[in-house]
Simulated scan of single mutants.
Amino acid sequence: MPESLLNTQDVKDLLAKVGGLGNENGDARMKHIVHRVVSDLCRVIEDFDVQPDEFWSAVSYLTAVGQAGEAGLLVPSLGLEAFLDLRMDQAEQQAGIEGGTPRTIEGPLYIAGAPLSKTEARLDEANEQGEVLFMNGQVRDMDGQPVAGAIVDIWHANTLGGYSFFDPSQPKFNLRRRIETDAEGRYSFRSILPGGYGMPPAGQTQKLLDQLGRHGRRPAHIHFFVSASNYRKLTTQINIDGDAYLHDDVAFATRNDLIPRIRRSTDPAAIRARGLNAPFAEISFDFVLHREAAAAPKAEVTRAHAEAA
């Protein structure tokens, strides 16, 4: 077997120059990261005997992912966003932070600036057809005390799996709201039960998933940011029990503690009391936050988001 090119001085010198390791300019951390990434990629090329046409096909694929705006879909589908969450869990445990509501992925479909309501809100602006959902709960700290004035930021898909802003048929902030909790840390909202959805079937993410023999489906879910002064921001989502992909999420975001029980009411008096003419669903879910701690890793993640026009 021929000697690995990576062990030759010529290639070692090449990779050192690629990473800028021989100069005093630039950012030292970035230099070592680039050197490592390119070195590991060269090892993959060598180990799998990647041919030039295969390499340039991969470059074309990544270009197409960017042009299609699918990087935010590809990353969770490859488990990278779930891995970042697991690393954060580990870092918090090492800092003595355990328990509370589990985190899970944010996903790529958040839009900042949703309307802010006090204590309660209605999320469906478009007279959406679907099973009406009433959800309520409390934001508490680890000692069980209510967190007044917390902001519960909510976003989810409609029954067809479409998100407002990304789906131009919906009003700008349909199924998106921020709710400020009351003095007892309570929030409530009316919406509809969302549907699950899949990667665009002709898109670049599904193209790769097909090569891996994987589906591109996500179970129905509702996203949340929960934040309050002096508390660690929580990024999480609940999954809708009974979905066929509940434990087979392409984004690996399902956590058992984030699958609340759904109560369905068919009682005519309860239906009338809600001002409805059909059965409805109810979910109760409390969020438990940790206080900020000096030794803890940063909970607020800085990332680019689309902005509503």
Rank of each mutant, 00 (worst) to 15 (best):
R261Y: 09
A278T: 13
F280D: 03
L246D: 11
I262Q: 01
A273Y: 06
D286A: 09
S284Q: 15
N256F: 03
A273I: 06
H247V: 05
R263N: 12
F287A: 11
L246A: 11
N256I: 05
A244T: 11
A273H: 10
D241K: 14
A270I: 09
V288E: 04
F285E: 00
P279N: 08
I283A: 11
A281N: 09
S265G: 02
D249Y: 06
P279Y: 05
A281L: 10
D241V: 14
I259Y: 03
A269W: 06
G242L: 10
N277G: 14
A281V: 08
E282I: 01
E282T: 04
R255S: 01
P268N: 10
D257H: 02
A281I: 08
T254M: 08
I271F: 04
A281Q: 07
L276H: 09
L258P: 01
D249E: 08
F280T: 02
P279W: 05
I259G: 03
A251R: 05
D241N: 13
H290P: 00
A281W: 04
R255M: 04
D248E: 13
I259Q: 04
T266C: 08
P260E: 04
L289F: 06
S284G: 13
V288D: 00
I271E: 01
A270H: 11
F285N: 00
A273W: 07
F280S: 02
Y245L: 07
A253M: 11
N256P: 03
E282Q: 10
D257M: 03
F252N: 12
R274G: 02
F252E: 12
R261F: 10
A253E: 12
H247D: 13
D249M: 07
A278Y: 08
R263I: 14
D257L: 07
A244E: 14
V288C: 02
D257G: 03
F280N: 02
A269P: 01
L276V: 07
A269F: 08
R274K: 15
V250A: 15
R263V: 14
L289N: 03
D267M: 07
L246V: 11
P268D: 10
R274T: 03
F285G: 00
S284N: 15
V250H: 05
G275I: 12
V250K: 06
D248G: 10
A253L: 06
I271R: 03
A251K: 04
L258N: 09
A281E: 09
H247M: 12
A244K: 14
G275Q: 12
D243G: 07
P279M: 06
G275W: 12
D257W: 00
R264V: 15
P268S: 09
I271G: 01
I262S: 02
D249P: 05
P260D: 05
L276F: 11
D286K: 07
A244F: 05
A270Q: 15
R263T: 15
D248P: 04
G275F: 12
A253G: 12
S284C: 09
D267E: 12
R255Q: 11
L258C: 02
N277W: 09
P260Y: 04
E282G: 01
N256C: 01
A281G: 09
R274W: 11
P260R: 06
R264L: 10
P260S: 07
D249Q: 08
I283W: 08
R272H: 12
I262A: 03
R255V: 03
I271D: 01
H290D: 00
A270V: 11
A281K: 05
R263C: 03
I262F: 03
N256M: 08
R264G: 05
D257R: 06
L246P: 10
D267T: 07
T266Q: 12
I271K: 02
R263A: 14
